[in-house]
Simulated assay, not measured.
Amino acid sequence: MHSPALAPLTRRVLLALALAGLLLTWLYNLRYLAGGGSLMPGPFFQAAFANDLTTAITLDVYLAALAFSLGVAADQGAGRARWWAVAATFGIGLAVSLPGYLWWRSRPTGRDASTS
């Protein structure tokens, strides 16, 4: 079983959102690293939880990432290839993986073409 095919415009918007998620978030990630920021857990989480606002945003994104990952894990119809989305969520970012997964999952199949 697969997800229903989405309208071509919706698929293009999802792909554009994934690209925007990559470019916009990584612009700031690279600026953080260029400014002396670290990906080591101690300094990274100290920066991520620096104040109430960054704490709320960090918790929001990590909880959403966990929920999304559980959804991907449960989506057995997508086969083993679906695990790219979990790796991308924690390695690149939820703003890339979530719209990217929806785009990937809604791709037309040969069966869609024959039944439409």
Score class of each variant (00 low, 15 high):
Arg82His: 06
Trp84Leu: 13
Ser38Tyr: 10
Val72Glu: 03
Ser106Ala: 13
Leu27Met: 10
Ser38Asn: 08
Gly42Ser: 10
Ile57His: 00
Gln46Ser: 06
Arg111Lys: 13
Tyr32Arg: 07
Leu66Cys: 11
Leu17Arg: 06
Ala65Met: 07
Trp103Glu: 09
Arg11Tyr: 03
Ala87Gly: 14
Gly77Gln: 04
Thr10Tyr: 06
Leu53Cys: 05
Thr25Pro: 00
Ala65Gly: 06
Ser38Lys: 04
Phe90Val: 04
Trp26Asn: 15
Ala81Asp: 11
Pro99Lys: 03
Ala34Asp: 13
Trp26Val: 06
Ser116Leu: 14
Arg107Gln: 15
His2Tyr: 12
Tyr101Asn: 05
Ile92Val: 15
Phe68Glu: 04
Asp75Asn: 09
Ala47Cys: 02
Ala78Cys: 11
Gly36Thr: 09
Trp83Val: 04
Thr55His: 03
Leu98Gln: 01
Trp26Gln: 15
Gly100Asn: 07
Gly71Trp: 00
Arg111Phe: 02
Ala113Pro: 01
Leu23Gln: 06
Ala85Gly: 07
Asn51Phe: 03
Leu23Val: 15
Tyr62Ser: 12
Ala113Leu: 14
Ala56Ile: 06
Leu66Ala: 15
Leu63Phe: 11
Pro41Glu: 13
Trp104Pro: 01
Gly71Ala: 11
Gly79Thr: 04
Ala67Arg: 09
Thr115Asn: 08
Gly93Ala: 08
Trp83Arg: 10
Gly93Lys: 12
Ala48Asn: 09
Leu70His: 05
Leu94Phe: 15
Leu9Gly: 13
Ala95Pro: 07
Gly42Met: 02
Tyr28Thr: 13
Tyr28His: 15
Ile92Ala: 10
Ala7Phe: 01
Ala88His: 05
Thr115Arg: 14
Asp52Ser: 06
Tyr28Ile: 08
Ile57Leu: 15
Trp104Lys: 04
Asp75Ala: 14
Leu59Arg: 12
Phe68Ala: 00
Phe49Ile: 05
